[in-house]
Every structure is written in C-alpha cells, then in structure tokens.
C-alpha cells in the first residue's frame, strides 16, 4: 500500500486517515467511508476535469496543514481540494457545512422537476436522500 513511501495524515471529523499525496479530501473521506463522506453529485472519478460544480461536497477546513495551520476562510469543495499533511477537515461536525449544504440542496431542488419515477438516476440520487 505504501507505494511512494510517503503518506500524509489527514483528520476528517476527528478520524485520522493516511492517504497518498495528491488525494482529494473527498477521496480521503471515501477511504474512511460511512457518514464522513460528503455527498457529491457532479464528481465522477473517471472523468477528467470533473467536480467542483455542484457545491454539495463543501467542507470546512479547520487547519490547512501542519506547516500552515491557518483555517481556510471559505468552505471548500472537497472533490477538488487536495489534502495536505496535518489537515483537519470538518464535515459532519461543522454547523456551517450543514447550513450551507442545506442551502445548496435547496437551490438544486428549487428548479428541479420532481419526476423521480421517470428519471434514470432514481434510487441512486442524493437529492432523494
């Protein structure tokens, strides 16, 4: 597993995980799995240039890295932000994330036809959750 030898530590919702450099916050959270994983609607790992658009995967970065522990001023899209060593991410544990993610989903639903039975994504859709 230690392919490059260098692994970096990142803490998401108080759970520490070791990942390879260049991993996004989202993928690091996916390695932990479960409740910690932010929802992501526009991100599909196989497509180049994917992600960053739907903003449902916003997370709070409480500390940027060990070298620069300042928090990031804004919520960041976890699918397009790479982890740094010593980064502390708040997803489920952040009020701000809950509030703003709720807002984003509200925006998405505001103009969304709720014709779930005819939609191909039905059953696998985060909006239904």
């Amino acid at each position: 597993m230690h392919r490059s030898g260098v692994m970096i530590k990142v803490t998401i919702d108080n759970i520490e995980v070791e990942v390879e450099p260049g991993t996004t916050i989202l993928n690091a959270a996916r390695q932990i799995g479960g409740e910690v994983v932010p929802p992501a609607m526009c991100y599909y790992s196989k497509l180049p240039g994917t992600g960053g658009k739907c903003r449902t995967c916003l997370v709070e970065v409480a500390a940027g890295s060990t070298a620069d522990p300042r928090p990031m001023p804004k919520l960041v899209a976890s699918c397009s932000t790479n982890v740094m060593d010593g980064m502390i991410v708040k997803n489920k544990t952040s009020e701000k994330v809950h509030e703003n993610r709720g807002g984003v989903v509200e925006f998405l639903l505001a103009n969304h036809p709720l014709d779930c039975p005819v939609c191909d994504q039905a059953g696998e859709c985060h909006l239904q959750d």
Partner: peptide
C-alpha cells in the same frame, strides 16, 4: 457552472 450562483 455551480449551483448556488445559477439557482440563487
């Protein structure tokens, strides 16, 4: 491109 701005 991103939902908050487009919808909001």
């Amino acid at each position: 491109q991103c939902s908050p701005c487009r919808e909001g």
